[in-house]
Write a protein that binds this DNA or RNA. Structure first.
Length: 173
DNA sequence: ACTCTGATGTACT
DNA sequence: GTACATCAGAGTA
């Protein structure tokens, strides 16, 4: 399967893909890779209750709560590998996203924002991509940017953040 | 533009 | 008790 590969390979390949969730859609413009040998990864300590989806089938979602408030969406690759979706260019269902996010707020410029905009929460943890309401349409990416990941303290200098240039990134590279 | 901080849940030591 | 793969609002400039 196309998703069953190391996160460092999958993360750039997800750039440019269209993520469709229950009527809302966006183009993936920013990702981060997390692997089992990475001290910053939730899979680093081995399988637990929370990270079970990371060790489950490739091409499924791993959704977790961060800082008690926000949800973050990952795409699972090979066992213990996952790619955090950090930012989208909003494409469809924008009115719904605005309602969920609130007036004047950015829609998808960060992992917590995009999860809220698309209505993703813990009920989506472990869900398979590939249904009309929850799918991922891959597109061949052109050139992309590489940098260090955001918001972590361990392995902070690993170049595991990937992005497409443009105004939709959570932060410039 | 920037830096600081509060809000909140859960999994760890 | 502490550490988070975060966001929003307030403050300074």
């Amino acid at each position: 399967m196309t998703f069953d590969c190391p996160a460092a390979d999958l993360a750039p390949r997800l750039l440019g893909a269209t993520l469709i969730v229950r009527g809302c859609a966006g183009r993936i413009v920013e990702t981060e890779a997390y692997a089992p040998d990475d001290p910053a990864s939730h899979s680093f300590p081995g399988p637990t209750m929370r990270n079970a989806a990371m060790f489950g089938p490739a091409g499924h979602a791993y959704v977790y709560r961060i800082y008690g408030l926000h949800w973050c969406l990952n795409v699972v690759g090979a066992p213990g590998h996952a790619v955090l979706i950090r930012a989208l260019e909003p494409l469809d269902g924008i009115a719904t996203m605005q309602t969920r996010r609130g007036p004047g707020r950015p829609l998808c410029k960060g992992p917590g924002m995009l999860a809220q905009a698309l209505g993703i929460d813990g009920a989506d943890d472990g869900r398979a991509f590939g249904t009309p309401d929850f799918r991922l349409d891959l597109n061949p990416p052109g050139d992309w940017l590489t940098g260090t990941r955001i918001g972590i303290t361990k392995a902070a200098d690993w170049p595991m953040r990937f992005g497409l240039p443009g105004p939709w990134l959570s932060r410039a590279f």
